[in-house]
């Protein structure tokens, strides 16, 4: 549905999206271990409408759970580009915000939002499941207000994102076919 033209249908669509967020089960760093308690009976994220999805094309939300090596970042970007609009990104931990304890590491990125648009950051090292649920509620609020438009932002600023990605990957840049096919992303 077109997000340029907000109206009552868009409001209803956003209300529905908010209550049915499918999370891509892709753990990148140490935060992957916080996902099982969040999802299972102890904290039970399913009461917020959160469930796991098997593949990127079925998922709405990509949780970046911790530090990102440049090698992992490449996979994350490919995964993100394969997801369908609307898509959201929730980044956990101080590593994704400013490098965290890997601030002088030679192969960990320092700012995630240079490479993909991030909707909500959750600070902490690592954030506990309560904090993750708090971040999910913040994301739901953003979705309801129609401000979670990361996909649109990525589409409009694709050259800037690709320039930043090229600075990290150098010659081994990602292939174009995940985003530059007919009709765009």
């Amino acid at each position: 549905m077109c997000t340029d033209n907000p109206g009552v249908w868009e409001y209803i669509a956003n209300w529905a999206r908010k209550h049915s967020i499918w999370v891509l089960a892709y753990g990148t760093g140490c935060g992957a271990i916080e996902m099982p308690p969040t999802m299972t009976s102890r904290y039970d994220a399913e009461r917020f409408g959160l469930r796991g999805a098997a593949t990127p094309r079925q998922a709405d939300l990509l949780i970046i759970s911790g530090y990102l090596a440049t090698k992992t970042l490449k996979r994350v970007i490919r995964t993100y580009e394969q997801m369908y609009d609307p898509k959201y990104v929730l980044a956990l931990g101080s590593c994704t915000i400013n490098g965290g304890m890997y601030w002088d590491s030679y192969n960990t990125i320092k700012k995630l939002d240079l490479y993909i648009p991030v909707d909500v950051y959750v600070a902490g090292c690592m954030p506990r499941p309560e904090a993750i649920i708090e971040g999910i509620i913040a994301l739901q609020k953003r979705i309801e207000e129609g401000r979670a438009e990361g996909a649109k932002k990525y589409r409009e600023n694709i050259e800037w994102y690709k320039k930043n990605q090229r600075e990290v990957f150098g010659d081994e840049m990602l292939p174009d076919y995940t985003w530059n096919f007919e009709g765009g992303i």
């Binding site: 915000i97 400013n98 490098g99 601030w103 002088d104 590491s105 030679y106 990125i109 320092k110 700012k111 240079l114 600075e167 990290v168």
Partner: peptide
């Protein structure tokens, strides 16, 4: 191998750090 030098060359810091 100077990791901090490498990081300064290849990555961007977030302001305020």
């Amino acid at each position: 191998f100077d990791t901090l030098h490498y990081v300064n060359e290849h990555y961007e810091w977030r302001e305020g750090r």
